[in-house]
Amino acid sequence: MIHIKQVHKAFGQNQILKGIDLTVEKGEVVVILGPSGSGKSTFLRCLNFLERADQGEISIDQTTVTFNQAKPKDILAIRRKTAMVFQQYDLFIHKTALENVMEGLVIARKQPKDQAYDTALQLLTKVGLLEKKDAYPHQLSGGQQQRVGIARALALNPEVILFDEPTSALDPELVGETLDVIKQVAQTGVTMIIVTHEMSFAYDIADRVIFMEDGVIVESGTPVEVFEQTKEERTKQFLARFSYHHS
């Protein structure tokens, strides 16, 4: 279980996060929606210390860390319980697909190479890219790169995977394959926090949907509550700009 309390973050005078609280149960899929500039990505990046929050604390699986007092070893401890999938995929450009998936296991987790190799093959199979295992990122399409990115995150077997707009940089025809892989992973009980603009996907996959604006959580609930029984005016306005349908 993950407890996040009172996350505050400012860039200079600009207050991006104004006290975010979130509790995520094991195996839960939380989707964060909101207009650009609402602080969704910053919030996600604060959780694994890619940005340093000014205030607040996070506790994952009995490790509790206060953001502004965290020492390098606390930061490493939290990072090693989390994994992230990036908007721009951010695969290691000098490594093959297989090496990208193995890298975290072998280097950060000190796993024996042959064991990491087996895990990596298994995960590349899972995301449907076994035949691309020796390809370098520049030889893969965006969708394929992102699926390797998902395999890289899964390999670490983290307490939670943070998805930072995983399909926003993809060509429209490549979005589907990536979302399918994420859905398939979600069904295996992996805890996820997902920032996305894909409304139908959010509706289908989320156990809980959160609408964020101006650094605060405006509304939160099940997909049915947020999408169909919307309470807040701001959420209604936001959702009205998207045409979505769910299966």
Partner: peptide, 23 residues
């Protein structure tokens, strides 16, 4: 070097020295 390379390395749990050597 794209900034994402650093983010990716840190997100999989690399130490500063591992980022230097491996990325």
């Amino acid at each position: 070097i794209p900034k994402g390379q650093f983010d990716a390395a840190l997100s999989v749990g690399f130490t500063g020295r591992q980022v230097l050597r491996r990325v």
